[in-house]
Design a protein around this nucleic acid. Structure first.
Lengths: 206, 206
DNA sequence: GGATGTGAATGTCTTCACAGCT
DNA sequence: AGCTGTGAAGACATTCACATCC
């Protein structure tokens, strides 16, 4: 398949959200124009984004809401279940473990790790916090599909190395460091200070 | 000033981080090539990013680490202090209130709001959780420079409207909704489910 | 009639490559 | 000699505009 831009994938993900809203509101079909308005983009952008993957609409009519939603779920790989491990049982980890938006989209946190003996063994939203030292042993049979890294900056690379060695192929990284990983591993960084800094720049230049 | 791409601003923010690391390590000058390696980009990209704002290096030598760091702080508007309000005292709000990376970069959380009477009045990291109903009154004299919106999706737009009316010009939005705000207000969205979905897509297509 | 799907045009971002300064 | 700063080229993304189909 031709390489698809990250920005396109993000928009598809947004479109799916809007479609789910339309579906909940009982709307049966939707035009590229309506989707565009909802996501502050243009109808041409919507159609172009979809056209990379096929043609899913009916001319003169628009798109069937449930059909397009199913198609997008398929494109994004959301028809399946993902087992997720959260490493780092601090405040960020805590927020992620009980984040409501995850299970409904197929992301299920099944492991929580920390290295602090005071936290290990405690129950978190029905999950026992495990010792990060046992990570490799735990993943011997089943590794998580996705690991969420929510440890302090200084330990992040070491944990990432171990996750990769244990078979993890996707990491959502909350630590403010640039992880070095083999190219077959997908990494997405979320850096809150950096987001605030882009706001700072925006404030200054308007 | 010419309009600068968001991607450029994000990279500048990263470069600043790397410069601070170099500074801590006692490195006095750095080449565009060294910065590029650190941030997995190219030396041409680094130089081009900087060139939008001026010329800060010495040919044959590179950039003075402390000087370039100061320049970037200036460009990003980080030489000043930002007063931040967090609205929504759930797990995400909690993580943000005590996030270590903020104060060192000039972002100071000074207000925390919720609408749950059980939470209002409790102390959070030295801050009293306030009733969101009193937001307008609290901001009459001084409004926060930046508001972080960490409330559930259904209440987010209403709170955003009130924040804007109260004078807030920048919002970091954690609610999974597309906020409608006047164009003079800067909004950055952080959507964790969406990040996982881009990982899902990446996993599927490799 | 009305909205899609898509080449072509335009606009934006990144990379190249080298003149010019230290 | 080494590395910056920058026009020009190239790659990529968005928008236009219209033929096509329901």
């Amino acid at each position: 398949m031709r390489k698809i831009a990250e920005s396109t994938v993000r928009r598809l993900s947004l479109y799916l959200r809007f479609l789910e809203e339309f579906e909940a509101a009982g709307v049966a079909t939707v035009s590229s124009e309506a989707l565009a308005r909802r996501g502050s983009t243009t109808s041409a952008q919507v159609r172009k984004d979809l056209s990379f993957f096929g043609s899913f609409g009916k001319r003169g009519l628009g798109y069937s809401v449930p059909e397009l939603a199913a198609t997008l779920r398929d494109i994004l790989g959301l028809e399946r279940r993902y087992a997720v491990a959260v490493v780092g049982a601090g405040k960020v980890g805590s927020a992620l473990v009980q984040y409501r938006g995850f299970p409904s989209r197929g992301f299920h946190v099944e492991w929580v790790y920390d290295r602090d003996p005071a936290k290990i063994g405690s129950a978190w939203n029905g999950l026992r916090v495990r010792d990060v030292a046992g990570l490799e042993a735990d993943f011997e049979e089943v590794a998580p599909d996705i690991a969420i890294l929510a440890v302090p900056a200084d330990g992040a690379q070491a944990v990432a190395d171990r996750l990769v060695a244990a078979g993890v192929r996707a990491i959502l990284n909350f630590a403010p460091v640039q992880l070095a990983v083999p190219e077959e591993v997908a990494v997405k960084n979320v850096n809150m200070a950096l987001e605030l800094e882009t706001l700072s720049y925006a404030l200054r230049n308007r």
